[in-house]
Amino acid sequence: MRGATAMIVAAGVVALGLVPVLAPPFYANLLIPFFGYAIALLGFNLLFGYTGLLSFGHAMFLGLGAYGAAVMAGENGIKSFEVVLLGVALAGALVALPIGLLCVRFIGIFFGMLTLAFGMLTHAILFKFYHLTGGDSGMRVPRMNILGLEFQAYNKIELLAGPFYYYCLGLLVLCGLVMWRIVHSPFGLHLRALSNNAQKAEYLGVRVYQFRLAAFVISAIYGAIGGAILGFRIGLADPEIVHWTHSGHLVFMTVLGGFSSFLGPIAGALALTLLQDQLQSITPYWRFILGAVLAAVVIFLPRGLAGIAGTGAALAKRRAAA
């Protein structure tokens, strides 16, 4: 069954790779946020799907990535996107460590509320400390070079729809492979064990709190990388990126795609990005339809798109370890 997952991934990568070639730049540009979200959700689902912790404040780490890029590239003149990615990943880990230490003592609704509170605390800080963060107008994220190349001949749209697009695709594949290894490692098995039954897991020697914390930190690193991509594309980091409703959207994408499957959240990110774009071009009331879609998924499709697609991705995940 692992072959099936590999086939889906290969087909997906080829299809995504063809977008800039076959479709107008608009679509490649549209998919950049998808890459950012997909990477962030890979991490988010390690926490939610595999470890059983639903964070309602995860957008704070996307914010960290975007603002981190603004600070590093905008204020300190670091022009290499790779250095910025490493920087925000490190910052994500450092910030997640103390917050996680406090949050993972709780599970269920209390974990959700605590992360929500931390998220909104971050929002309030970004919003209120105008002289540091630019308040509601945010901070500028300047154009950076990727792989040491300036691409001076390209304007911003061309850069995004061309080199940066492939760069993000590559980054997604890389982050996906790393996450695949993590969830199929002994560490990943212990995460699933503790989310299934924490008490039993402890007696089998699973370090429940340390592992929850580790999952939290890894998910924060992925979130920060995703956030840096979002910031690069818009050229701006503003407080709305950490608002609790944005965290809600992360959960939305994950559930839409299916949190019990490895590829589900990526499918969810793609589906929501495309759906939102389509709806926005049709009606000003797209939020209503998104809400209705979410309600329908929650009620009728608790396993998300991965559940109906019947791609066997979920099966592959389980059987691969045996």
């Binding site: 790393v178 290894r181 993590i182 199929h184 490692s185 002994p186 560490f187 990943g188 098995l189 212990h190 020697g205 699973v206 370090r207 592992f211 691969a320 370890a321 045996a322």
Partner: peptide, 11 residues
């Protein structure tokens, strides 16, 4: 004592 092996393949 292999629980902290984040990237090794269990299978």
């Amino acid at each position: 004592d292999k629980a902290w092996r984040l990237f090794s393949k269990l299978a």
